[in-house]
Design a protein around this nucleic acid. Sequence first.
DNA 1: GTTTTTTACGCAATCGTTCCCGATTTATAC
DNA 2: GTATAAATCGGGAACGATTGCGTAAAAAAC
Lengths: 341, 341
Amino acid sequence: MKFEAVTIKDIAKALSLSTSTVSRALRDSYEISAETKKLVLEYAREINYRPNPIALSLKEKRSRSIGVIVCEIANTFFSQTINGIESVAYDKGYNVIISQSHESYVREVIDLQYLASRSIDGLLISVTTETKDFSHLRELHERGFPIVFFDRVVDEIKTHKVVANNHKAAFEAASHLIRKGYKNIANLANAPNLRITQERVEGYRKALSGNGLKVEESLIQYCEHGGLIYEEVEEALDKLYNQKPLPDAIIATADKLTTSCLRYFAKKGLKVPDDVALIGFSNSDLTELLNPPLTVIRQHAFKMGEIATQLLLSQIESKRPVVDFETIVLDTELIIRQSSR
Amino acid sequence: MKFEAVTIKDIAKALSLSTSTVSRALRDSYEISAETKKLVLEYAREINYRPNPIALSLKEKRSRSIGVIVCEIANTFFSQTINGIESVAYDKGYNVIISQSHESYVREVIDLQYLASRSIDGLLISVTTETKDFSHLRELHERGFPIVFFDRVVDEIKTHKVVANNHKAAFEAASHLIRKGYKNIANLANAPNLRITQERVEGYRKALSGNGLKVEESLIQYCEHGGLIYEEVEEALDKLYNQKPLPDAIIATADKLTTSCLRYFAKKGLKVPDDVALIGFSNSDLTELLNPPLTVIRQHAFKMGEIATQLLLSQIESKRPVVDFETIVLDTELIIRQSSR
DNA sequence: GTTTTTTACGCAATCGTTCCCGATTTATAC
DNA sequence: GTATAAATCGGGAACGATTGCGTAAAAAAC
């Protein structure tokens, strides 16, 4: 069932004018007389005329829409980021097309092809944990296609990037635990290939060694799939509990890892913070209602989305090719609650 | 900065063929010789040709994209629904454009205009709590534009709808509380104008009266904004606690209301389930980690999204106008945990 | 009264693709 | 050998909107 829209031709025919005259009248051109304008405008409103954006896109070679690829919109961090993206895009008259990669490299590539073929004007992306080959992105980027990375960025592609100050975030979290007297602080980390993981682990290391604590490598456990599969987290935590020294505190460096940790503790009957303290990266507003209320590292996700979108749109609308790329670093927030006392 | 794509003309010029021949070769037409086809196909792959979907849309008068309007994608129920929508749309080669109304009627109307002007082929929508005037939707619908409602449906517009069995869900939740011995079961309800609210309240009423309990009207409190504003929920709960009989159990009939309830209890020092039992509609997977683990009514959100999208796409792709509309009702799931014992 | 300028509009090309007609060549039929 | 039928390709209109250019009529200038 087709939905027939009103076109400029219908107006032209009805008013016995040419399409060019109607077009110019609608755009308030100086070459059209006041009365003709009035006539056209009134009739256009009457029959509820809307310009066909597809025809415009074809002519202008731009669709006024941008693509976003994230792992999961159900992840609060990403849904907040998307809110930020949307708010800026909306203001500037851009459309946002969201795709989920579900932490799958294959899906990311397909999504990208799909979005590119839908003629988006630019792309915002946070890559998957599986993404180690960046040729799909590099190829587009080299052809001059505007891409802005946020959160999980790709080092080797030179373009705008927006990231959290992951090093500082992990450093502060670990320092906080150290001040509270914890000695054997474990790190439940995301996929090791991710830049954000490396930074977070580095910040953790710095805090420990800076406070005279030895960094036990066995206290750092990575999760290749970023906690998307619970079994993976369980395995990592099992390893932590099958080595010495046993952890008296854990820093979980991703949303999913944090909640999976709690699930594991519940299953094993471990009490937080008595048996083990917990600090997690999380943007969920339910963390304060958890048992116990969770100490979290909260990212300014909305702002990250806003800034990334501003950078992307400025690049899209730039007359000359952009060569001067920025990397914006946003501070995080450590919210101290019961789980780390 | 523009991104120049390869067109069919480039191929035609390079191979000294006409655009029509290239077009036909690419579409594997029988009137093109095998060798020409091979030539074109190989060259097209070589220069990485992708058909311009905008040009196609213009010709075919369809964009192969559908619009979705929900209140908040950060709401787990909606993000799960969107996952379902996406999976079906993706399979059929459709694009999904998501807009958030943020529970604002004005925003909903703007979103709708925006989406319609972006020439989407159809719309999936769950209306806001503020939406009492449906003319923006009715107008489109009457012009033959395919719309499918899900979750928060509009009665007076005859089209496909997908809803939860709200009556049964609330009935089961209330019955469960009654079996557990609770006598003064309150209902913290969503906006009273919503159909889903009415059904949920009705199910609650039926369970009470069916079990010989009197329905106290003061034990039913509505939240006009669906819990988006915490203060509103606080006010409603204050009212519940400033009347007699005091509630010994509460049924919260929306995701946001459920969590706001817990926040209120924490603030007031009320213990669940000792001071008051709680059952809430919620699709968050964090509810079992809450303090205490929450008894919830879980909707099959993913499935709801899938079905709604199937209905929409079947209508879009139907040759004749669809007149026979379906309303699909999905059962919910009562997951019993500590908060209601 | 003639020339120039201004006003107000139409024609046609353009964006990338499809598809209806022709047109030309080659193969088959008689 | 001629007529007919395939086979293979090109020309050009169309989708909806914009825009440079051309032009008629009216107004202004001389």
